[in-house]
Structure formats: structure tokens, C-alpha cells
Simulated scan of single mutants.
Amino acid sequence: MTRPSVIAHRGYAGAAPENTVAAAVRAAERDETAMIEIDVQPAACGTPVVIHDERLDGARDGRPLTDASGLVRETAIETVQDARVLGTDETVPTLAELLEAVPDAVGVNVELKNPGADDLRFATSLSPDERDDRREVWTPFVDRVVAECDAFDGEILFSSFYEGALSAVRDVAPEYVAAALVWDDLETGFEIARRYDCEAIHPPRNAIAGTPLARTDYAGMPADEPAIDVVEHARDEGRTVNVWTIETWLQFDQLAARGVDGIIVDHPGLGAILSES
């Protein structure tokens, strides 16, 4: 069995304060880590910062995401950078700070979360009339993100649930690898991947046919056998399949057995049993 690449979700969010420099550095130190997945959006000044939630005052298992509050895109960069993550001394980094700390031997999956706007059309295939409009919304932020990524010598992969973001990436920096993130509609995910010639597709863990996971509820996908065999479909189209987000080694085992290319995981070591067998 070919071992899938391990992608550290927010720097192994189950083992470290997510999307922080410390999490990224620790993840990069592990031999198993092929890539680190992070989330980016702008502070009020437009500077790309690494944080998942739109608001600084989100929560994880009852603990505040940070000790600050408000929409990230409306908050001064100094306040964002001073915000402590999940009750630790780690703070919200800029994209530049995080990339500077990561060795170029490890890739970085930059998920484009928000360009600093509302009404982004989440996981939706846009009509031709909407595509130019949505690309224009995303382009200024994508310009800033690409400028930071250009200084990183390692592999960069851009991913997003938003068609406008992928359109902007292809327009601004077609030389980078791109991936369509899939929510509840596999047909739409592949349609968007084809439209922008995405090298990869990122489905949720229960979207992989022929696994027990396919019969569970997760994210936007129902507990039914998928109508599309994502792995076979992607192979036919020459796309890589990176699945999100795995919490146990049993889940990892199921997906590895189906031949996915990469697995986005919350905890390190989930693929160790496979590699030792």
C-alpha cells in the first residue's frame, strides 16, 4: 500500500495551538509531515494573517479561540498580532511570519478563507456573469498573499471553498498549484476543479466511496454512499485527492486503503501503524 502524504491541519490542531508559528514549527520537525495546512484572511489593513475563524472571539471545546474580539477583517493588525491563541502564549501570526519560520523542505497548503468581504458564495458554482465580479473581490487579497508566498522557497498549494478565490489565484499566479475544496456537492467540486484546471481536489473524509466513513455524517456530506467515486474520477482527470480532516488512525487506514494521495490530519502519528506494518 502506498502511504498517503500527511498534511498537518492548522499545524496539527489536535496537538498544538492551531495556526500559530509554534504549531507550524513543531509540525515541520516531524519526519512524517509533508505539508502544513493553514488558513489566511486579512486584518483591517489588508495584511494576510493566519487564523481560521472570521471572528477573533470564536471558541474551541469551550475555550475562546483568542483573548481578543471582533471580526478579523475589521481589526487593526497590531491587535490581531497581540491576540493570544487558545489560552497560550502563542499569538496570531502574519502569513509572512509563519512562512519565514517554516523550512522549505515542508510544503504549505494556504487555504484562502476570506478576502475581507461578505457574501462570498461558499462552495457554489458561479454563473459566467458572477465570475468576474467574484474574482475582483478576491484579487487584492490574493495579490497580497501571493507576494508573501513568493518569498517562500518550499512548495505552496492554494486551496479554497470559494470559486472567486480560485479564479483570482489562476489570474494572479497561475504557476502555483491549486485545489478545489469540496463541501456537500461532489459534482460542483469537480466542475470548479475543471474550470480552473486545479491540480488537486480536497473532499471531506466521508466523500470517499467504499469506506465505512462514507456511511457517516460529516461536514456537509450525508451518511450515504457517494454517487461519485472521487478517487477514480480524480485519477481519470489527472488530479490529486487530499482528504480532510482525520482524527484517528482507523480513519487514516480506511482512506489510505482506498488510495487517496494525501490526508489532512489533526494529530501527528496517525499513519505510523501503516508505515510500520
Rank of each mutant, 00 (worst) to 15 (best):
L65P: 00
L65F: 03
T66D: 10
T66R: 02
D67R: 11
D67Y: 09
D67K: 13
G70Q: 07
G70E: 01
L71W: 10
V72W: 09
V72M: 02
R73H: 06
E74P: 00
E74D: 05
E74R: 14
T75L: 02
T75F: 01
T75M: 01
T75Y: 02
A76F: 07
A76S: 09
A76D: 04
I77G: 01
I77Y: 03
E78S: 08
E78G: 00
E78R: 15
T79D: 11
T79L: 11
T79G: 06
V80C: 10
V80I: 07
V80D: 04
V80G: 09
V80A: 07
V80F: 00
Q81F: 03
D82V: 13
D82L: 11
A83R: 12
A83G: 04
R84Q: 10
R84M: 07
V85P: 11
V85E: 06
V85W: 05
L86E: 12
L86Y: 09
T88H: 14
T88Q: 10
D89W: 15
D89A: 11
T91R: 15
T91K: 15
V92W: 11
P93Y: 01
P93Q: 02
T94H: 07
T94R: 14
T94C: 01
T94S: 13
L95A: 00
A96S: 12
A96K: 15
E97A: 05
L98G: 00
L98P: 13
L98D: 00
L98T: 03
L98N: 12
L98H: 01
E100W: 00
E100D: 15
A101R: 11
A101V: 04
V102Q: 06
V102G: 08
P103S: 02
P103W: 12
P103Y: 12
D104F: 03
D104A: 14
D104N: 07
D104C: 10
A105W: 13
V106Q: 01
V108C: 08
V108E: 08
V108H: 09
V108F: 05
V108R: 11
N109R: 05
E111K: 10
E111C: 05
E111G: 11
K113Q: 05
K113E: 11
K113I: 03
K113A: 00
K113M: 02
N114Q: 06
N114Y: 12
P115W: 05
G116A: 06
G116P: 14
A117L: 13
A117Q: 14
A117P: 02
